[in-house]
Simulated assay, not measured.
Amino acid sequence: MDFDPAPLFALSLLPYLLFLRWLQRSGTLPELAVWGFRLTLLFVLMTIVAAVLALRCCDAELVAVDGLHGGAEAFLTLANAVLVIGLLRSDADRVNNS
């Protein structure tokens, strides 16, 4: 039995976009942390592009092409770094020195 997960992947973007909208409107996180979550979508996009390139140019899956795989994962590292920096800055802003 072959199962194509692509439709589920596309459907999973909707709840994430709703989460981003809620996060923006709620104001519970600093803007830089919200950008970290937004950059996760850039990671997803770059992973899709890298996977297509791996199939077309190298006739292999993305996990077998280290340069493309590492390049795509770099965007996840960027997103996580921006998120953590945003959270750390918000924590420093909340310190009460009175």
Rank of each mutant, 00 (worst) to 15 (best):
F19I: 00
F19G: 01
L20D: 07
L20H: 11
L20Y: 08
R21V: 10
R21T: 13
R21S: 11
R21D: 09
W22Q: 07
W22V: 04
W22L: 04
W22R: 05
L23M: 10
L23S: 02
L23W: 01
Q24K: 11
R25I: 03
S26R: 15
G27A: 04
G27M: 03
G27P: 02
T28G: 15
L29A: 08
L29P: 01
P30E: 07
P30S: 04
E31V: 07
E31P: 09
E31T: 14
E31H: 10
E31L: 09
L32G: 03
L32K: 12
A33L: 01
A33N: 05
A33W: 02
V34W: 05
V34K: 12
V34Y: 03
W35T: 08
W35K: 12
W35D: 02
G36M: 01
G36Y: 01
F37A: 11
F37I: 02
R38T: 06
R38C: 11
R38Q: 14
R38I: 09
L39P: 00
L39M: 10
L39I: 02
L39H: 04
T40G: 14
T40H: 13
T40V: 08
L41Y: 01
L42A: 14
L42R: 06
L42G: 05
L42C: 07
F43K: 10
F43T: 12
F43H: 15
V44E: 07
V44C: 06
V44Q: 10
V44H: 10
V44Y: 05
L45C: 11
L45V: 15
L45H: 07
M46G: 05
T47W: 10
T47D: 05
I48K: 02
I48D: 00
I48G: 08
A51S: 14
A51H: 06
A51P: 00
V52H: 10
L53K: 09
L53C: 12
L53S: 09
A54D: 01
A54L: 03
A54V: 06
L55G: 09
L55S: 12
L55Q: 14
C58N: 11
D59F: 14
A60I: 06
E61C: 01
E61T: 09
V63S: 13
V63P: 01
A64D: 13
A64N: 05
